[in-house]
Design a protein around this nucleic acid. Structure first.
Lengths: 278, 278
DNA sequence: TCCAAAATAGAATGAACATTCCAATTTCTG
DNA sequence: CAGAAATTGGAATGTTCATTCTATTTTGGA
């Protein structure tokens, strides 16, 4: 079963279907069709009464229209119009949809291919929402913060560790002095002991926040180390005190996470920093 | 910080206000605040009952929260969340994609935003080609190879290290026994010493292939350890002897690499393995 | 430990809603 | 120009919803 037809696709498909059938509809329903095509957002948010009044028809005409184009009622049609808005912004809803899609595929037999497709869909939407949520201003500010730093300290444990590991790799390749706070061979606190206001810190942490990260972060902030936080919520324990916060919301939980978005962000910071310092 | 307070601005202002007041709210309202910040889309579309149920509180708590942050009721607060979605509708997905591709040419441009867009475009296309190149048969075979393994050894150094680090994290979360060959505290060879035909090995390596990987890989193969290789070319030094090879071609070079595709692949292997062994 | 104040859960309430139904009207058809 | 069929308007219906209210629980202070 090729599903396609979720999110924007479903909306576009419906749009085409309405346009096609427009000619053969009774006049009042044509009127509805025109309004609906011209004001999709009103349909997404409005009630039957509102849409009817704006269209200039009776509420029942709206319901009849919805049925005429293949739905069981207005509410059902409205879902399609809402899904479009979700596809545009709204990472959470979208993420949930793709997760749903994945789960559906998995239910149909747990075939690994379906699992892969699910993660690919997640990854695509994560990248998409990253693209929308990151502003040029924040990127500039981040690079300005990192540029003068003597050493760049990286803190990310548990599921976030691969992100900082990658960042460490790239920054070192680019000739930067990096301290990766991984706690190997002793306490993290000792590794971070030399950090001062002349350095910089990049913290990466997602729910559920790794205890050592939560503990060490405020210490470094208190010592005046300029800090960039990459996390999933403004309420995360690594937000207060950070000079700059990149919020990457709606990450799936625990083992289901791919870290694709944070990786891309971090990569861009490193390369952007390198380009800026020539 | 005087915003015009309409559309997205109003939303951002509200978000900040909620984050600030979070600490001083009673606990149930804090709970609501967290959900609301993390799932704005659910608030935009949902009913009080839905939001309450997803948050895990009573409907009245939602209303109390809305009043606590300065509205007359839930409905009023919801308007702000809806306004954000309306503001974000304009550019269609396809338009954004093509813009992304166009900007890719500007990769050499130094503006960090262009750099990020470039990596995002790369990531998208990497995922796309991964989706095409991986066959269901290979995935099945990989999972069949991993399923009976006692311990799963992971080998990936340099730029590939984040991939295996992530894989190790996920597999351990799922209760698998994992040995991450990272060379910490001694030689990698010693870490791998216990590997036998009853175990399994996943090697990840991309050009230019890390010397230690190239050295250790044939040893393990010679000892009969069933091996899955993830690499960028069939000519790569970790292909010969591997039971199974996932080829992910066309990776950009060295520090420019994001590892997004291998990460997704590896994630799918782990989850697919877990699902298969229920 | 006890008391007062705040917070909360859950039921009650009344409004708003989508949907259904039917009589009135218009549009086809022979 | 009938007569039948389709379409339409508008009221009726049953449901769902946001909101309010109150009894109970929890919290904080003396």
């Amino acid at each position: 079963m090729n599903d396609g037809a979720t999110g924007t696709d479903a909306y576009e498909a419906l749009r085409m279907a309405i346009a096609q059938r427009h000619a053969e509809l009774p006049s009042r329903l044509q009127q509805v069709a025109e309004f609906v095509l011209d004001h999709p957002t009103d349909v997404a948010f409005g009630t039957v009464a509102e849409v009817a009044s704006r269209t200039g028809v009776q509420p029942s005409a709206i319901v009849r229209f919805a049925r005429a184009v293949g739905f069981n009622g207005f509410t059902e049609m409205q879902q399609v119009f809402r899904s479009r808005l979700v596809a545009g912004v709204a990472p959470s809803y979208k993420a949930r949809l793709s997760r749903l899609k994945r789960d559906q595929g998995a239910r149909l037999g747990r075939r690994p291919r379906a699992v892969l497709d699910g993660f690919l869909a997640d990854a695509h939407s994560a990248l998409e929402s990253l693209s929308q949520s990151v502003t040029e201003r924040d990127l500039d500010a981040a690079i300005a913060l990192l540029a003068p730093a003597r050493d760049i300290y990286l803190l990310g444990l548990g599921g976030s560790y691969p992100v900082v590991a990658h960042l460490a790799y790239v920054l070192r390749k680019l000739g930067r002095r990096v301290v990766l706070l991984d706690g190997i061979g002793g306490s993290i606190g000792e590794q971070a002991h030399a950090a001062t206001a002349a350095d910089a810190l990049i913290v990466v942490s997602f729910r559920s926040y790794y205890p050592d990260t939560v503990r060490l972060f405020p210490e470094l902030v208190a010592r005046g180390v300029p800090t960039i936080a990459i996390t999933d919520s403004l309420l995360s324990p690594i937000v207060a005190g950070a000079r700059l916060v990149f919020e990457i919301p709606d990450m799936p939980e625990a083992a289901m996470r791919t870290m694709v978005a944070p990786l891309c962000l971090v990569q861009s910071l490193a390369i952007g920093l390198d380009l800026a310092s020539d």
